[in-house]
Design a protein around this nucleic acid. Structure first.
Lengths: 161, 161
DNA sequence: CCCAAATCATTAGGTTCCAAACTATGGTCC
DNA sequence: GGACCATAGTTTGGAACCTAATGATTTGGG
């Protein structure tokens, strides 16, 4: 590890930052997966439920796709799985018949409430190495990076023809 | 995006940091992929070559696995592909016959040298939103997080029975 | 009014990755 | 020396993800 960082001093910081961000993103994903899988969930499915919860219980598939930064095709697959487990229902959108409206079921609400404490404990373990002000600092830097990255790739995940 | 971050203020910062790290890791990977794929490389395969280069031309598969934060099974698959393209050779380790020693070929060195300039330009675009001191700050925070995360999961990707 | 472009969801096919099981080797303790 | 466990790499099966193509619907200009 230290060897790999030392070997990068040729390209000032960006290379080390990119490597760190990718590695940490991956480590955090698998760590949270571990905590969710014990409760029978994948992190992608959990993300869909979180988006639905934040949107007040229902959303359109393309909104879920945007928020999770995955393609609409992937969302279709995730919803298939969630619907099989009766955690989600697909209904027609009342106004625009091209769209669907995805709704959480009561079962999903109960499950989500049950797993949040454990999920938050896992988050706490992961970020225990940083104090609150450092976490805030990190968050600020990440937000600035995200804000700059968005205009670089405007139609990131849209399916074009 | 801003909506999803705002909705997370209930769990102080850790949730937002985790979401940001995962999303940025993924965005950076796909962004670098775009630049590498034009030259016929996946970012994981490129990572293997980088690790080999930093290690002086040869390394054991489990070292590659640790540095890239992917499982050993994945490294096996990556090496299969690189070996088919004659960019890497698998030899037996002279001392420990369980291990292998993976070596870059001359072809790989030439290719890596050719792609580095474009790769560094892509890195520059991604991190253009942060000044040099902020990049250093980010790097420090990431290093601290990595240092703390390592002992939490000692046998991170090892297959246990 | 009608046809062309845009938008939404889905399907099909392929890639990448992981976890678990398996094989082979090395080290340890009696 | 043999039982036993840890370690290294591979195989296998499945999940998540992408791109490209398709069908359905809405929208807008001529």
């Amino acid at each position: 590890m230290s060897a790999s960082l030392a070997a990068r001093r040729q390209m000032p910081c960006a290379g080390a930052c990119a490597a760190g961000l990718r590695q940490l993103g991956s480590l955090i994903s698998t760590e949270l997966d571990r905590s969710l899988r014990r409760q029978g969930f994948s992190s992608a499915a959990f993300g869909v439920l979180q988006v639905l919860h934040e949107s007040g219980g229902s959303a359109a598939p393309h909104e879920i796709s945007d928020r999770l930064a995955v393609s609409r095709a992937t969302v279709t697959g995730l919803l298939d799985g969630l619907e099989r487990r009766r955690l989600v229902r697909r209904a027609r959108h009342p106004d625009d018949r091209r769209m669907r409206r995805v709704e959480m079921t009561g079962r999903a609400r109960v499950l989500l409430a049950e797993m949040l404490p454990e999920h938050n404990r896992a988050l706490g373990r992961i970020f225990a190495g940083l104090g609150a002000p450092e976490q805030q600092q990190l968050r600020t830097l990440l937000n600035r990076l995200q804000a700059h990255l968005r205009p670089v790739r405007p139609g990131l995940m849209a399916s074009r023809r």
